[in-house]
Structure formats: structure tokens, C-alpha cells
């Protein structure tokens, strides 16, 4: 006797990623995510302000160990992420095809670029200080040097369009220098971000270093922007100029460092060209330079 019933697929539940765990939103809310053609893909958790709060606590808690790890160690951990990504390329191709409506061919090369981008940033972990740090020849008997240090907890509004390449292009530069991140995934294309979180959770990235929230950008951004324990904001994915303006104003309350959305387009809708080599800007936006002086004598 043979069973002719076709196999029923196991559907994936997409949850939040906070402090190394995958909880549902504390609010119990979720929202429907569709593919590029409008077909239902999955339900995603709709994070609340309390999830933002919890994610910031987790990110703050993870900060000392992550920033205190050696740059070599951070580089190793991030390279490990690339290794795990490489093994899951197929899954990400499917998700990008679904999210962004790309052809399989285009998506395949895009995912390859994602892995390569991650490797590129991983390599910076133990080199950036040599490029942006300095030994300063002061007019006196002092040894004086400047080193970059992470800014702290960085809130990242991920790009709305480029759900994976754009995502890693804003996330990797934040954490490679030792910051921890609270990331708001693309509102309409959040699924690759959660899959990336699953990669991070299984590749030695300590819990809390990256926290991923899905939900309404307009609802969550103001909480993130006003949070007094967040040190910096990357507003890359804020397509709404008024919202971006308000976020920047709120950020002033504790003088967060703000990386503004690209203003190349008058509607602020232009996303950077993610295929280009990034440069240092997204890393240097979230570091502090510390200068240390010491006398030279006997």
C-alpha cells in the first residue's frame, strides 16, 4: 500500500531576536508579510515599544564583553558568520526572491555578495584602529595616541528595499567595531532579517550583540530614537522625511550620534548603491576616538 497524500510543508514561524532568544512580541501581535507579488508568505512578530526596551537592555548587557573582546576574536566570530551564511545560501536565495521579486539568478549573485560583504567587514575588525587611529607628535615629553572605541548601543533602521544585502551592509559595520545593535528590520521585507538572526544565533555571536525587531517602522523608530540608553542611530531605512526629522530631533536629547538617511533623492527614497564597495563611513560613524596622554620620563 502506498500513501499518495502529498507532503505538507512545515511552515516557519518568524519571531523576534532579543538577547540571543527568539521570543514573540510581548504584545502578542503579528502581521502578515507578503511576497513581491502580494502572496502571503508568513506572519511576522509585530514588536512593541516594550520589545524595543527589552532589546536595548539586552544590547547594553552584551556591550562590555563584545567591546572588550580582542579585535582578532571579533574578526573570528564574524568570519564564522560568513561561513554559516555560505552554507545557507539556498535558503537566502529563496527568501530574497520572495521578498524582493528578483530572478533566481540575480538573487544568487546577490546572496554571494552578501557573504562576501560580511567577509569584507569581518576583516576590518583588527585593522580599522590602524587606519583611523594615530600616534600624535605633541610638543612636549608625552606619548600621545588616539584609538577608536565603539560608541555603545546603536539603533539601526535597516533599509526598506534591500532586505538582505542592504541589511548586512548596515549591520556588519556597526558590530565589527564592538558596538551592539538593536535593528529594526525592513517593515515589508522582514523575513531575511530573522533568518540572518538564526545564523547569528548559531555562529558564536554572543547573545545580545545583535537584536532584531520586526514590525512597524513608524511605531518603533520614535521609541528607539528617544531611548536615553541608546548611543547612536543609523536612520538608513527611514523613507519618511518627517519621521527621520523627528527621530533626529529626539536623538538630540542625549546627543546620539546620527547617521542620516541618504538625501540623494528629494523624497529621501534613494537607497545607497549596496553593490559598491562600502568605504569606512558606516564604521567610523559609530566609533569614538579616545586620546591618551602619558609623560615620558625616568
Amino acid at each position: 500500500m502506498s500513501d499518495v497524500t502529498p507532503r505538507l510543508a512545515v511552515q516557519k514561524t518568524y519571531k523576534l531576536y532579543i538577547g540571543g532568544r527568539f521570543p514573540r512580541s510581548e504584545s502578542g501581535r503579528s502581521y502578515q508579510v507578503s511576497d513581491a507579488t502580494g502572496r502571503f508568505l508568513a506572519n511576522a512578530a509585530m514588536a512593541s515599544r516594550k520589545d524595543v526596551r527589552d532589546a536595548v537592555v539586552a544590547a547594553r548587557k552584551a556591550g562590555p564583553a563584545w567591546s572588550g573582546a580582542s579585535a582578532y576574536n571579533r574578526g573570528q566570530v564574524l568570519y564564522r558568520v560568513a561561513e554559516v551564511l555560505e552554507g545557507r545560501r539556498g535558503q537566502f536565495v529563496d527568501e530574497v526572491v520572495a521578498a524582493e521579486g528578483l530572478s533566481v539568478g540575480t538573487a544568487t549573485s546577490l546572496v554571494a555578495a552578501v557573504v562576501d560583504r560580511w567577509v569584507w567587514y569581518a576583516g576590518w575588525a583588527d585593522k580599522l584602529a590602524q587606519v583611523v587611529g594615530s600616534s600624535n607628535p605633541v610638543a612636549g615629553p608625552y606619548f600621545d595616541f588616539t584609538v577608536p572605541e565603539p560608541t555603545g548601543v546603536v539603533g539601526v533602521v535597516a533599509p526598506q528595499s534591500s532586505s538582505l544585502l542592504g541589511l548586512v551592509s548596515v549591520l556588519a559595520p556597526v558590530i565589527v567595531t564592538g558596538n551592539t545593535a538593536v535593528l529594526l528590520a525592513s517593515e515589508r521585507r522582514p523575513l531575511p532579517a530573522i533568518s540572518l538572526a538564526e545564523v547569528l544565533a548559531t555562529s558564536d555571536v554572543p547573545a545580545g550583540v545583535v537584536n532584531v525587531l520586526t514590525g512597524r517602522t513608524a511605531e518603533l523608530t520614535p521609541w528607539l530614537a528617544a531611548h536615553m540608553d541608546v548611543n547612536a542611530l543609523d536612520l538608513c531605512g527611514l523613507t519618511d522625511t518627517a519621521l527621520a526629522h523627528a527621530a533626529e530631533e529626539a536623538a538630540a536629547d542625549n546627543l546620539k550620534r546620527v547617521l542620516r538617511p541618504s538625501t540623494a533623492d528629494p523624497d529621501g527614497r534613494a537607497e545607497p548603491d549596496w553593490s559598491a564597495e562600502p568605504g569606512l563611513e558606516r564604521m567610523t560613524a559609530f566609533i569614538e576616538h579616545k586620546t591618551v596622554w602619558h609623560p615620558v620620563g625616568i
Binding site: S134, A139, T291, V292, W293, H294, P295
Partner: peptide, 18 residues
């Protein structure tokens, strides 16, 4: 802190980021 003075204090120099 952006500037740490060790065994000295309030030193400034044009070549030293502050």
C-alpha cells in the same frame, strides 16, 4: 572619555584629537 590623561592633566596640543 574622549581624552584620558594618565599621570598628567589638562594637556593640549594641535596634533592631539580632543
Amino acid at each position: 572619555a574622549g581624552v584620558v590623561w594618565a599621570n598628567t592633566f589638562n594637556r593640549f596640543d594641535p596634533g592631539s584629537p580632543f
